[in-house]
Amino acid sequence: MLRLPRFSYLRPASLAEAVAMLADHGAQSSVIAGGTDLLPKMKRRQVQPAVLVGIAHLEALSHLETTASGAAEIGASRTLTSVLKDAGLAHHQPGYAQAAGLVSTPALRNTGTVGGNLCVDTRCNYYDMTEDWRTASGSCLKTGGELCRLASSSPRCWAISSSDTAPIAVALGATAVVAGPEGERDVPVASLYRDDGNAHLALGRGEILTRLRLPAPDGWRSSYVKLRRRSSMDFPLAGAAVALKIDRGVVEGCRLVLGAVASQPVELSDLVHGLVGQRLDEEAIEEVASGASRLAKPLDNADLSYVWRKRMVKEIVARAFRQAAMSEVAAVV
């Protein structure tokens, strides 16, 4: 059977100690919460950290609170299942809860965490392969090689952002709280990512994502639509997150974020800008959805054909808009 490489497991007593441990061990170390992303990659020898710093047990990362206004603060080590079961979140943050519920399978949601899904490694079907397969194929930019196997002339890695919760968090204007050697800082989730498959997180060495803050809905509605082959288990082939504020059919504010079409979530602010002040009718939805499909550039490194995935961006964006428009205006306005 596939087994893990050897490593030292460290169990810090506090968040500060965890940060210090990561700083001490540098590039040799990795933080681990649920492990559902990291451990398979270690078994396939895609990454082989010598030191794992466990953070799942830390109190500082495990709280979950929804205020009366609907603003939520979720500890990064909360499991996706615990998010789904939270009535406050389901009520106030339906788009986020929807996305969390679409991640993988029930058993993996029981272990996989809120922070883990936001940070989930980029994926590529030249990279997410076993050691033997990659030996046969040759190493790629993401495994220390000289060449991108997808686009051999490319100077950069095109692995795909594959988080379901990241696009909706960006659309909701969420904030990530990050702890590091210099203390805590707030980072808009939109700024958490970089368009580089080989270094997709804008986090410094030793930094840990500790909490996710979702702002109060304040009349905004949200929705996430995931494209995948099967009804469970699969990573997104594309995702569309929509946050929408509508008053009597007229758009007052709108954010659209695509997932799984680039190395980071792609916010299409210019595209939806024109919607503000307009009625959100089928024609408007169709126009925005077509625009999103035009702008999306999926590549041939995930399941099914990239041509189809690009085409389907239009469909899922349209579905997300319709869903968001139909969803009840979040309570406590």
Partner: peptide, 18 residues
């Protein structure tokens, strides 16, 4: 799949610390 405190998890991805 086994149950960890009543919830299904995948034993192949569970470390001793958990």
């Amino acid at each position: 799949t086994v149950l960890l405190d009543g919830a299904p998890v995948l034993a192949c991805l569970v470390l001793p610390d958990q």
